[in-house]
Design a protein around this nucleic acid. Structure first.
Lengths: 190, 190
DNA sequence: CGCCCACTGGAACGAACGCTCTACCCACCT
DNA sequence: AGGTGGGTAGAGCGTTCGTTCCAGTGGGCG
């Protein structure tokens, strides 16, 4: 039955649960059960305990989300259209998951604040890499260097916030609006 | 010593702690200690338990945050400047609290998803009331009705996302950028 | 005065938490 | 055949969780 390694299943399950319930809201035993693994396996692969597992799970989420963004960006040539495509894709995915699978790091980020926290650092890494993904696309489309990086940051922030609101209100509207407005904003710089 | 009622102190403490640590990350005993109250008092005022207390705390946070937005909006006549003022004020408050006091509902919202959840509903109420606050200001400034409401939604989402990123990266930059871009977006509709 | 009742204080409950520990299985070595 | 070690399995540690319960306490009213 199991096609992937135990370690991979544990990380994937942790990522899925943390995204939906946050860090403190997710128990190690629950992760083990969801991954069809046992507690012994979890602590064998992650001697660092829950925190180390969470960091690995957040890195997993970062790459998964980056893949989604890349897919949306690659389909468009115009920068404004590319940004809108991201919003539309996120809206579709969110609805498909019954509004449960939002940003894989936000929930964990806000409840583990504090300087030097490894979990917070993993979340910051993820946000930074997504911003670079958008920035590279804008640069490829010919936007000025200085503005592309700033714009990319705001694009990520807006998608983040709109996605959270979409989850809470169980509606695609926030993300679709964000796409429209962001694409207008980007177009105003071309 | 105590200048306010026990109930008020409990709600304020709950709001403060939930904002920083999320819902599951905050214990009832911790709330009682922070409020200089006892467990008996907490369950006396909130027979509904932790969940009912959280709903009251989120409503408290909603009003507090609304006051902040009103203060920023009232100081400006131009809609674009008003939106930027919100971002700047949030950045200042966030830095003053050492990046701990962000949005009072986001952290709780994302870890309590699920249809019919009272906590999620309280969060949705808060987002909706903030959106209306912004929308009223934009309408007062003469923006067309249809666009004002949509714009207000995106303003709230972007501030929300930028604030979260600012907390995680411990930097004002995300909020200041958001202010600049939002104000440009609003100006493009006048 | 005696009664009442909103409120306080904290002990105690079962459940769940993160984590440790030992026993065990089995594919692979010499 | 006998050993080796990565991986599995789960009982159980001490702690904390949300909640319940009850014995006070003190100001207002008859």
């Amino acid at each position: 039955m199991q096609t992937s390694s135990t370690r991979d299943r544990i990380v994937a399950a942790a990522s899925r649960l943390i995204r939906r319930q946050g860090y403190t809201g997710t128990g190690v035993k629950q992760i083990a059960k969801e991954a069809d693994a046992t507690l012994g396996s979890v602590y064998h692969f992650f001697p660092g305990g829950k925190e180390a597992l969470a960091v690995a799970a957040l890195e997993h989420g970062r790459e998964q989300f980056a893949g989604l963004l890349r897919a949306a960006l690659d389909g468009e040539d115009d920068p404004a259209a590319a940004v809108d495509a991201c919003a539309c894709l996120l809206a579709r995915e969110l609805r498909a998951s019954d509004w449960t699978d939002g940003c894989p790091v936000t929930a964990a980020a806000l409840e583990t604040l504090g300087p030097g926290n490894p979990i917070q650092r993993a979340c910051a890494d993820a946000l930074y890499s997504w911003r670079n993904l958008i920035a590279d696309k804008l640069l490829d489309c010919g936007l000025p260097d200085a503005e592309a990086r700033d714009l990319a940051a705001t694009v990520v922030h807006t998608l983040e916030g709109a996605q959270a609101t979409a989850q809470v209100t169980r509606s695609e509207e926030p993300l679709l609006l964000a796409g429209r407005h962001l694409s207008r904003l980007v177009a105003s710089y071309t």
